[in-house]
Amino acid sequence: MNTPHTLRTSAEQEAAAFPALLARAEHLAGAVLLGAHGRRRAGSGDDFWQYRPAQIGDSRRAVDHRRSAMGDTEFVREREWQIAQSVMLWLDQGASMRFASSDALPQKIDRARILALALAVLLNRGGERVGLTGTSLPPRAGRAQILSLAELFCQDDEADYAPPEHRAMIPHARAVFISDFMGDIDGVRTALTKAADRGVRGVLCHVLDPSEEAFPFSGRTIFQSMGGTLSHETLKANDLRDRYLARLAERKDELQSLCALTGWQYGVHHTDKSAQAGLLWLYAALDAKAVAA
């Protein structure tokens, strides 16, 4: 039973966590920010995109006379497409994400939080609307939205495995799911199917600890879920290695197939790699989906 003291302690821990997370995410975003986020194609906007030769059907008002005067060809000045896009994030905050195989490595949830919030910072700086899947925080722009995301990302889910939130998907928006995807695959399948039905395209970022790829266990070992609800003891852990690795490879194949079927992009990020590398991949993958849409 919660007492005023334990509630206060928990509240203080959460209050201390989200400013630190925000500072780290903004630092990471600043390290990889290459310029304002643009769709890098012609369209409605204020920024210059490129000159191109005039074509039949172009308005005479679109011709750039200064550039055209430099030669015998008439050129049109195009602007860059700058329509704000809604991007919805889902961050797995289940207990399985609180695993780290050593003190030298971050927990999966810690890395996932940094990646999700840093990506939100980058998108917000580029004028995009960012929020969460579901109804708790619809996509919006602005500093206040980033603060709200940081606060919500610091909350934990008590369940061992949290299924993706797929409610209130905005038609033709973009989405990013970040998880270890160790739970029931049916939840992921349902979420991506519903997203595809609404024209939502996005990215799955599969976050894994390096030990979950290598399975470096042998002899007597007790395997226990982070939430403590599941436990398995074996005297010959090395005998499980091949079966475990086969199951992991099968899960990756399932996720890749789901992404291929629904128009999403799949990638793996390991917690022993740099957060900057993970953020760069996410940023490029999301932008590639936007351009392809």
Score class of each variant (00 low, 15 high):
residue 1 M to V: 15
residue 3 T to S: 08
residue 8 R to C: 09
residue 14 E to F: 13
residue 16 A to Q: 13
residue 16 A to E: 11
residue 17 A to Y: 00
residue 19 P to R: 05
residue 23 A to L: 09
residue 30 G to T: 14
residue 42 A to Q: 14
residue 48 F to R: 07
residue 49 W to P: 03
residue 50 Q to I: 09
residue 58 D to F: 10
residue 65 H to Q: 10
residue 66 R to P: 09
residue 66 R to V: 12
residue 68 S to I: 06
residue 69 A to T: 08
residue 71 G to I: 09
residue 75 F to L: 07
residue 77 R to Y: 14
residue 79 R to N: 13
residue 83 I to W: 08
residue 83 I to D: 09
residue 87 V to D: 06
residue 90 W to S: 01
residue 91 L to S: 02
residue 94 G to N: 01
residue 101 S to C: 04
residue 101 S to R: 06
residue 104 A to R: 11
residue 111 R to H: 09
residue 113 R to Q: 12
residue 114 I to M: 11
residue 114 I to F: 07
residue 116 A to T: 08
residue 116 A to F: 03
residue 117 L to T: 12
residue 123 L to Q: 03
residue 124 N to H: 15
residue 130 V to T: 01
residue 135 T to S: 14
residue 138 P to T: 10
residue 141 A to G: 15
residue 141 A to F: 13
residue 143 R to M: 09
residue 146 I to H: 01
residue 147 L to W: 13
residue 152 L to D: 04
residue 153 F to R: 02
residue 158 E to Q: 07
residue 166 H to V: 08
residue 174 R to K: 12
residue 174 R to T: 12
residue 179 S to R: 01
residue 179 S to Q: 02
residue 183 G to H: 05
residue 185 I to Q: 05
residue 192 L to M: 08
residue 194 K to V: 15
residue 194 K to D: 15
residue 195 A to W: 01
residue 203 V to Q: 03
residue 204 L to D: 06
residue 207 V to P: 00
residue 210 P to I: 02
residue 210 P to F: 07
residue 215 F to C: 00
residue 222 I to G: 02
residue 223 F to E: 01
residue 225 S to K: 04
residue 226 M to F: 05
residue 226 M to P: 01
residue 229 T to I: 04
residue 230 L to F: 06
residue 241 R to L: 09
residue 242 D to T: 12
residue 243 R to I: 14
residue 244 Y to K: 00
residue 248 L to R: 09
residue 249 A to T: 14
residue 251 R to H: 04
residue 252 K to Y: 13
residue 258 L to Y: 06
residue 268 V to N: 13
residue 272 D to F: 07
residue 275 A to C: 14
residue 278 G to I: 04
residue 278 G to K: 04
residue 284 A to Y: 09
residue 292 A to Y: 10
